[in-house]
């Protein structure tokens, strides 16, 4: 059973891959190559994405053309920085593997690795 979030991801995936404004019809046709999906469903979910601020739209003739607000990479960078940096503020929300360190600390870390005869790739 597919959830709404999955369809959202499928739709965004297409806009990001195409990297140009597209209509709901184009998205439906592309998804239909893999599985059947109703035009109205895609239309509704695209509207949700627009309302959530993920898509921009502009009218061309009678059809709405949608395009992503930001690139996938820009969103990913913002998410990563949120996940890695801002957790000082709310540590219980996201747990990251290593915190940010100063240059001296990184050097000390390298020394610790070298001391036991292991060569850290750099």
């Amino acid at each position: 059973m597919r959830r709404l979030g999955d369809l959202e991801a499928e739709i965004m995936d297409r806009f990001w891959t195409w990297d140009r404004p597209a209509t709901v019809r184009e998205v439906v046709d592309d998804i239909n190559k893999h599985r059947p999906v109703a035009y109205t469903t895609v239309m509704t979910v695209t509207n949700i994405l627009y309302n959530k601020g993920w898509l921009l739209r502009g009218k061309q003739g009678r059809a709405w053309l949608y395009s992503p607000v930001r690139s996938r990479e820009a969103y990913a960078a913002a998410l990563m920085e949120d996940g890695l940096g801002a957790s000082k503020d709310r540590p219980a929300a996201l747990i990251h593997f290593v915190e940010n360190m100063s240059d001296e600390e990184v050097a000390a870390l390298r020394k610790a690795l070298r001391n036991v005869g292991r060569q850290a790739k750099s």
């Binding site: 890695l84 000082k88 290593v98 940010n100 360190m101 600390e105 690795l113």
Partner: peptide
């Protein structure tokens, strides 16, 4: 240990966050 080093070393230090502490060092 080396994975921790790779992650720490490749991240550009940002002034504001650099005070994160030496947890990773103690852990390694």
């Amino acid at each position: 240990a080396t994975a921790m080093y790779e992650m720490v070393a490749s991240r550009a230090p940002k002034g504001a966050f650099a005070a994160g502490g030496h947890g990773a060092l103690i852990r390694v």
